[in-house]
Structures are given as structure tokens and as C-alpha cells.
Amino acid sequence: MNKTIKRWFPIFVLPTLIAFLIAFLIPFIMGLYLSFCDFRTVTDAQFTGITNYIRAFSDNNEFINSLWFTVKFAVVSVISINIFAFLLALMLTKSIRGTNVFRTVFFMPNLIGGIVLGYIWQLIINGVLYRFGYAITSNPTFGYWGLVILMNWQMIGYMMIIYIAGLQNIPNDVLEAAKVDGATPFRTLFSITIPSVMPSITICLFLTITNSFKLFDQNLALTAGAPADKTQMVALDIYNTFYGSIGSEGVGQAKAVIFFVIVAVIALLQLYMTRSREVEN
């Protein structure tokens, strides 16, 4: 059986593998190598050691600033999205009328693309700020909160769906037993509900953290980094380093490698946490 299938490699695997090599693996390896080179296109690379990595931090403060801005954005978004999503999920699993309609409405923004989302919120935030004589680009704080609100609007529905799936898996008799034993709703929430949906919480935390870190389209459409690149997140900074000026392609690639390492570390931490919890159970 095993051997018969093995001979069918060209049909079953080769198409995917070739596309994977072209779109991912070769660009990834070249990207790693080029981060140590000076280049304009990919064919004129000159090895320069770790110069690009030094320049990523020493050319200007933009990389550090964008990293810091991204972290601040991620922390606030991750917490607010997960709290709202969990509360909505709790309410929607309590057999209230119109649950399906509510679920449909809350999830919808998630399907709208980042560029479109950015312009929708630019209109609304500018409309509100105009009454006070400001625009979203007049102060980085406006752009920051604009991004947080946008991200909440987009991601709450998605996380809510995952929390609902988790909440529906809690056996009813456990909740009833708690009620019979006289547990308050508050106590039930913290001693039974939350521990039972821990897997969902880990997934949601991971998804919101990585999505917050990788945010690009929304950032480009809402503020494009204005004012003075102060609302520029890491992904946008890398893009601007690559395409904004000639001569810094290598620096852009070095920043991209650092960015990759950060995202990979978060992913591995998540994997490790999920595994150790599975062992506990």
C-alpha cells in the first residue's frame, strides 16, 4: 500500500511542492541570506555581514519606535478584544432570543478587508474629531486609539465564535451541580466556566497577538503612519524601509528577519503553553 502510493509522488505532491518552493521556501532562504547583504534587486547582492542589522537600529529610531508602538497596540487590543468577545459569548450562550441574528451581526466586520476597514474608520473618527477641530493625523494618540477601536470592531466577532464553541462544550450537569451546591454565578464563572474554556482562551490569545503584530492593511489605510511615522507599526515600517528609499533594501530585510524571530518566539511559546496544559488534563 505504502509503496504503491509512494510512486505517485509527481501527481500528489509535486504541484504543491513546486508552488511552495517558489512562493515560500526559496524566498525565505534568500531573505535570510540577503539580510546580510547590500542589494537593490535580488541578483546583485554583496555580502556585508551584520551591517544591515546595526543600521536597522542606528539609521534612525523608526524601527524601535514602531516596535514599541506595536507592542503597546497589541497589549491593549488583545485584552479588550478578548474581554468583549468572552462577555458576548457568555450572553449568547444563555438562550436569549435572536442569538443567531446577533452572532451574524457581530461576526460580519471580520469578513471585510483591512483596506476597506481602515477607510470606514478614518471617515468616522475624522467626523467626530472635526467637531473639536482635529483630524486623526493631528496627534499620534488619535491614530493609536483609532487602530485599537478598528481592531476591536474587526476581531471581537471572530473570537466570540471561538469562545461560543468552547462554552457549548461545558457539560450541563457540571453547571447544574454547581447550582445545587449553592455556588454564586460569580463563583461558577471563575471556578468552572473559565477553567473549562482555557483551550479557547489560549487560541484566542494567540490569534489576537499574532494578528495585532502583523497588522498592515488597516494601518496603511487608517493613518499610513501619520503624523511623522509616529503611528507606524512594524509591518508598515518594514514595507517603507524596502520601498520608501533606494539603498535600504538590506536594512528592510534585516528588520523583516527580526520581525520573523519575534513572531516565531510568540508562536513557540503558545505551542509550549498548549502542550503543557494538555499534559495536565
Binding site: 512562493a23 509591518a235 518594514i238 523583516a256 520581525f259
Partner: peptide, 22 residues
């Protein structure tokens, strides 16, 4: 493992080289 690995790599890591290869 290569396929799984590719899931955690952000697009910015390969965007320049990939668009040149394309």
C-alpha cells in the same frame, strides 16, 4: 514540518524576494 513552519512566518519576511522571483 516545513509546511507547519511556513504558517508562523510573517509575509514581510518573504515579500521582497518572493515578488522578485515571481
Amino acid at each position: 514540518y516545513l509546511f507547519v513552519f511556513s504558517m508562523i512566518v510573517p509575509f514581510q519576511m518573504v515579500m521582497f524576494t518572493m515578488s522578485k522571483i515571481a
